[in-house]
């Protein structure tokens, strides 16, 4: 993968490589209709090229645009009949069927309340239609998907940080794992990160206070279904300094 110059909307990319007449375009690029074999940039950012034929722009879009197959973290905002409406940070709420949880039947539905956090996969994402979520894979198994525990934190982080956390080479999560046991769920909807702490009681102490989580709810006191949401884009170093807490609405409590 090669990263070249910083480009701005309106920039024309010439000499586009293709493999058997196919060029794969990522976000921020459009085919230029005026001239053949050129691309038009629509977003500011770094132009990235993966040989032989993949092109995309690495910019800093803040609003999530749903893409088919994305794994996202969302908050249930509405329950109507058999469908749930989930806020995944896009323009429109996504639909999640009650029957698309593992083992769910018409008679035995999962216990989901408004305010709950789910980790789901986008089955369908078309700009003309409402996007659709599922919590099972094609073998009807949940895997990591499904309802997330209430004893955790929900944070909004930037897309760049999401990519860094999901990068297997990144040492941050491994280093944290050496200190205490935790579960983390990172959704690619640009701003949702859910940290689910397993109560490992006294083992979590002051080292954490400088890190990602607030200590108060982690040891002595019982974490009374606290969910924290950060509106700002933060890097790991900033998280501790800027941390502000918003208790979750009582409607979501169990």
């Amino acid at each position: 993968m090669s990263q070249s110059e910083f480009v701005l909307p309106g920039h024309i990319i010439k000499d586009v490589k293709s493999l058997r007449g196919v060029t794969i375009l990522g976000p921020g690029l459009r085919q230029n209709e005026d001239q053949p074999n050129t691309l038009c940039v629509t977003q500011p950012g770094k132009l990235c090229i993966k040989m032989p034929n993949v092109y995309w722009i690495e910019g800093n879009r803040n609003r999530y645009i749903p893409q088919k197959g994305d794994l996202v973290v969302g908050v249930v905002v509405k329950k109507s009949g058999n469908t749930l409406k989930v806020d995944i940070g896009s323009a429109e709420h996504a639909a999640l069927s009650m029957l698309s949880f593992e083992g769910a039947t018409k008679k035995q539905k999962p216990d989901v309340q408004v305010g709950d956090v789910v980790y789901a996969k986008l089955l369908n994402a078309h700009r003309e239609m409402e996007s659709e979520l599922v919590c099972i894979d094609s073998y009807y198994k949940a895997g990591p998907l499904g309802l997330l525990s209430n004893d955790g934190f929900l944070m909004n982080i930037s897309l760049t940080l999401t990519h860094k956390l999901l990068d297997i080479q990144n040492p941050l999560l491994r280093t944290l794992g050496k200190k205490f046991c935790y579960e983390i769920v990172v959704g690619v909807n640009e701003s949702s990160l859910d940290e689910v702490m397993r109560s490992s009681a006294g083992r979590v102490h002051s080292t954490i206070t400088k890190g990602v989580m607030r200590p108060a709810s982690l040891h002595t006191q019982e974490p009374t279904s606290c969910l924290f949401r950060l509106p700002l884009d933060l890097s790991p170093s900033q998280i501790s300094s800027k941390y502000s807490s918003v208790p979750r609405s009582p409607a979501g409590g169990r």
């Binding site: 701005l8 038009c40 629509t42």
Partner: peptide, 11 residues
């Protein structure tokens, strides 16, 4: 608009 990353034909 550029900061928000809105798709634009030109600036």
């Amino acid at each position: 608009c550029l900061n928000a990353g809105i798709d634009m034909k030109f600036m």
